[in-house]
Design a protein around this nucleic acid. Structure first.
Lengths: 131, 131
DNA sequence: CCCGACGTGCGGTATCTTCCGCACATCGAG
DNA sequence: CTCGATGTGCGGAAGATACCGCACGTCGGG
């Protein structure tokens, strides 16, 4: 499936954020100082796992993510929910609201979001509802 | 820090859920079939990292978690939020509400929770760190 | 007393993850 | 052409992780 290690994740985040890049650019933007060879090692495993592709531009390879940020997010979120929230995402949200400290502004925004969500689910799918 | 691997997490979950146990019980309750020696290997690393303690009862050791479920949860959640939500937990919640599908009932419950939370944040409590 | 059941300690293997150095190819400036 | 900058391929080291077998000690029933 979609199992990213911490080192791989750092690379993927850069690619998701800034798009196609070559190793040197990734190295420059990497949150921590990292040797070019170490970075390329991560790219190699990502390539092997099929999470990125690369294409040759000039004499350098440009790496592009194939794995979607959203799907990685979902996978991770799913594991967390399974491990700590009995597999229920609603449970997770409740937990967060109860135990993590959200500012009042956040709660207000949240409430609005919940109202909107309940009233009108986001557009896009569904055509038929009609009237 | 509080870094649990997947194997360790499975063990910790059993301990959090059912309390103090000896290896054989953990083995029996383990979600997947696992050899006694493999299980005890995980317990050894957990012990070494200080995430569990054990005490001798009769001729068997009983293992008890020292790490709190909640703190492990928070640590994992924090990583996820950093990686995918720009470090903002509010952002995470918004994301979930928008993209994961919550039932209307959930949204309603959520709204109520947000209202309650805004009105009266939970009383002091919190003691996390103690033993 | 002898034996099987149970539990522990110890060591070992295989794989993954992270990081690194070095040799080599290419390109443009001098 | 020569040199330095840039980029790649390759191999390998060190630690973490997951898994396992085996020898040994103890206890209770026959």
């Amino acid at each position: 499936m979609a199992r990213l290690t911490r080192g791989e994740l750092k690379v993927m985040r850069l690619l998701w954020e800034h798009g196609e890049m070559k190793p040197a650019e990734l190295q420059a933007r990497h949150p921590e100082p990292i040797k070019n060879s170490a970075l390329r090692s991560h790219l190699a495993t990502l390539l092997e796992k099929g999470h990125v592709t690369r294409r040759l531009v000039g004499k350098a390879y440009f790496y592009k993510p194939t794995m979607r940020r959203r799907s990685a997010f979902r996978a991770t979120l799913g594991e967390l929910v399974d491990a700590y929230c009995g597999g229920s995402i609603e449970n997770l949200v409740m937990n967060i609201i109860r135990s993590e400290k959200l500012s009042e502004d956040d709660l207000i925004a949240l409430r609005r979001l919940a109202e909107q969500g309940a009233d009108q689910p986001p557009p896009g799918g569904e055509g038929g509802a009609g009237r």
